[in-house]
């Protein structure tokens, strides 16, 4: 299996921090991985990837962050064949707002429409809930790794 692609889209940097945490945790388990900002990642590369972890926040009134939106647009436009891709998704949001974690839902559903298979539950961090980003993300990752064989 190729390296796990960790792709993040962020506005305030929190999703990037979560991506770094997930990368560290995979490192600790000896799992090969690469971290990229979605804005710097060619969507065609996903056709040859085996497994990817998508991390995105939600911005404004439920919109995709400025760094997630172009990546999502490219997916919708280029329609890469993602049937060989398995992925997991983690969102950062704030329950104060009605559009809580809208972006990760939009992204995951687009990936699924392109043939990719989502594994595990979509992780969701609620910034207004008081739990640290790392605790939520690493708890979610542990569950994911328990459920899915990635090596």
């Amino acid at each position: 299996m190729g390296p796990i692609q960790i792709l993040f889209g962020t506005e305030s940097g929190n999703a990037e921090m979560v991506a770094d945490d997930i990368a560290d945790a995979l490192e600790g388990r000896g799992l090969e991985h690469e971290v990229s900002a979605m804005e710097n990642f060619e969507v065609d590369l996903l056709t040859s990837a085996d497994f990817a972890i998508f991390i995105t926040s939600t911005y404004g009134d439920g919109e995709l962050p400025m760094t997630t939106a172009p990546f999502h647009d490219a997916l919708v436009t280029a329609k890469p064949d993602l049937r060989s891709l398995r992925f997991a998704a983690f969102g950062l949001g704030d329950r104060t707002y009605d559009t809580y974690n809208n972006a990760v839902t939009v992204l995951a559903s687009t990936l699924t429409e392109l043939g990719a298979t989502q594994v595990g539950e979509t992780g969701r961090h609620d910034a207004s809930g008081g739990e640290s980003y790392s605790d939520t993300a690493l708890g979610w990752l542990k569950q994911l790794l328990d459920d899915v064989a990635l090596d």
């Binding site: 929190n14 921090m17 704030d94 104060t96 910034a127 207004s128 640290s132 980003y133 790392s134």
Partner: peptide, 14 residues
């Protein structure tokens, strides 16, 4: 009452 926005300090703590 916007503690979610204040949580950005997690990054800065690091």
């Amino acid at each position: 009452d916007h503690q979610g926005a204040k949580a950005v300090t997690c990054q800065f703590d690091r």
